[in-house]
């Protein structure tokens, strides 16, 4: 895939939040990532988009240290030993595949992140209320505290997962398909929340999504992935790039979904 829209990336600074160089991953001889290079500046909100099978999930797993690359390197905050930077990363997975028989409540789930050394089983309600208060107020999960996680709607679960990741004040927030299974008004509320959280905490945010339309309103920089970073730039530039249309097929028309660009 030729690069047609590589714009001048805002200076990533001396130590970028994420630096990926020459990353290659194959499954069963089939290359999935064919040499990915990217530098994400600290404090930015970037989107990583690509159609299904483009390697988004594999790249995300490499960033989280869950997938060993065949070649290349991932550095987060300049550190290549990802285990060491894990405490600085907040990860919001797509969903929790909880068995319905596992009745973990939101309060218990959030308590898991409060302190690994203290055991949630012995926490009193008051203790967890006090410890969770500021995050609950910010994210608005207070009414959900005593509900089982398995009973939450997609949007509510996303809020809880964000609250979970914010409890350790991360410097990098990685969100995997954050609005999959969330209805349209819920999607807007969700991205407004991300914008608010980003403004307040100033961390680097990476949104991984196959949803082209969402990048318009919420990301300052977009990476389009299809085995390699086939295109990067501001949302407007990326949306109009010919290579992106090729990556997604000819029916791409993001303008149908949103009428205003931030």
């Amino acid at each position: 895939m030729t690069c047609e829209c590589h714009s001048h990336n805002p200076d990533p600074g001396p130590v970028p939040a994420i630096e990926v160089s020459g990353l290659k991953v194959s499954f069963g001889g089939q290359p999935v990532l064919k040499g990915v290079n990217m530098k994400v500046p600290k404090g930015s909100v970037v989107a990583l988009i690509g159609p299904n099978g483009s390697g988004k999930t594999t790249l995300l797993r490499c960033l989280l240290g869950l997938q060993e690359p065949a070649q290349g390197q991932v550095k987060i905050f300049g550190e290549s030993n990802l285990q060491r930077v894990m405490p600085r990363i907040g990860y919001v997975p797509q969903k929790l595949a909880l068995e319905r028989s596992f009745i973990l409540s939101v309060r218990e789930f959030l308590s898991l992140r409060l302190s690994q050394s203290r055991n949630w089983f012995w926490h009193s309600r008051k203790w967890s209320d006090d410890a969770l208060r500021s995050t609950m107020a910010e994210i608005g999960v207070e009414p959900l505290l005593d509900r089982p996680i398995a009973a939450l709607s997609g949007g509510q679960l996303q809020r809880v997962l964000i609250a979970f990741s914010l409890l350790k004040a991360p410097d990098l927030l990685l969100l995997d398909e954050p609005t999959a299974g969330v209805d349209s008004p819920g999607e807007d509320t969700f991205y407004d929340l991300i914008t608010k959280v980003h403004k307040h905490h100033g961390m680097t945010v990476v949104l991984v999504s196959h949803d082209l339309s969402m990048v318009y309103r919420h990301a300052s920089w977009v990476y389009a992935l299809n085995g390699t970073i086939c295109c990067e730039g501001s949302p407007e530039e990326v949306m109009n790039a010919e290579s992106l249309k090729q990556a997604y097929g000819i029916h791409v028309s993001p303008y149908q979904h949103h009428h205003h660009v931030h």
């Binding site: 797993r61 989280l64 240290g65 869950l66 285990q83 894990m86 405490p87 990363i89 907040g90 990860y91 997975p93 929790l96 595949a97 909880l98 596992f102 973990l104 218990e108 789930f109 898991l112 992140r113 690994q116 203290r118 055991n119 949630w120 089983f121 996680i149 979970f164």
Partner: peptide, 20 residues
């Protein structure tokens, strides 16, 4: 003693990994 860890893994293994 490891209830936090067991609970977290039961909820989501990758999330548990990111939590160390």
């Amino acid at each position: 003693m490891n209830l936090n860890v067991l609970t977290l893994i039961s909820a989501h293994e990758d999330l548990a990994h990111v939590c160390g």
